[in-house]
Design a protein around this nucleic acid. Structure first.
Lengths: 100, 100
DNA sequence: TTAGATGGTCAGGTTTTTCTGACTAATTGT
DNA sequence: ACAATTAGTCAGAAAAACCTGACCATCTAA
């Protein structure tokens, strides 16, 4: 993933390319989310693909994984600061899609 | 290409998915553009892929093909009204990419 | 203690996307 | 007449993305 890129759409497209990333990212917009919740909410998806997508989103610093040391430890994925910079783009897109 | 879609990013991603579409679209933002110009300006691309991408962008009504009946007839691709609705998204993205 | 949930990994196969090279046809310049 | 440019198409191969099913470890509830 070369971050050097003169085309901003290509940048977003690369960041969120793949069959499940946009949906994962969108669900993460609503707050921290867990692996199996994603798996259940994204219909048609599968463990492997979600796992790979999450790993890549982490590597791109759009999501971060947190292990919560509690009775039954559980793992959460949430937007990073960088991830949150994409929120206005999503809002803009929502607007555009409504208008079209 | 099912246009039904609850996730706007997924919508954009679908519209502009593929290795060359974002770059084609971006070049088209600067005005009508020709096949061989795209081919030359997008390095690493090839005839076949550009041709397929252009056809799909046309089918999605983001670009339109115009045959200009002049001495040597030539063909131009330009943004449609629908395509132009994506301009603010690109601007937003440019801003975000600068900030990141 | 056994079943079910969470959060994965791994190998292998299938599907989708992309690329290469050859070919076409119209037009223009030399 | 011949080469070059434009604007493609097509078949087949290669590469990338995705899916399935099996497996694993930890924990909890029955």
């Amino acid at each position: 993933m070369e971050s050097e890129n003169s085309c901003p759409a290509e940048y977003l497209l690369k960041m969120l390319s793949g069959k499940w990333k946009p949906q994962i990212f969108r669900l993460a917009l609503d707050g921290p989310i867990r692996f199996n919740t994603l798996l259940r909410q994204i219909e048609g998806s599968n463990k492997q693909s979600i796992a790979v997508a999450l790993k890549e989103l982490e590597e791109q610093s759009l999501l971060e994984k947190t292990i919560i040391q509690q009775k039954p430890l559980h793992i959460e994925y949430m937007l990073t600061e960088k991830g949150r910079t994409l929120i206005p783009v999503f809002q803009q897109l929502e607007h555009v899609v409504r208008v079209q």
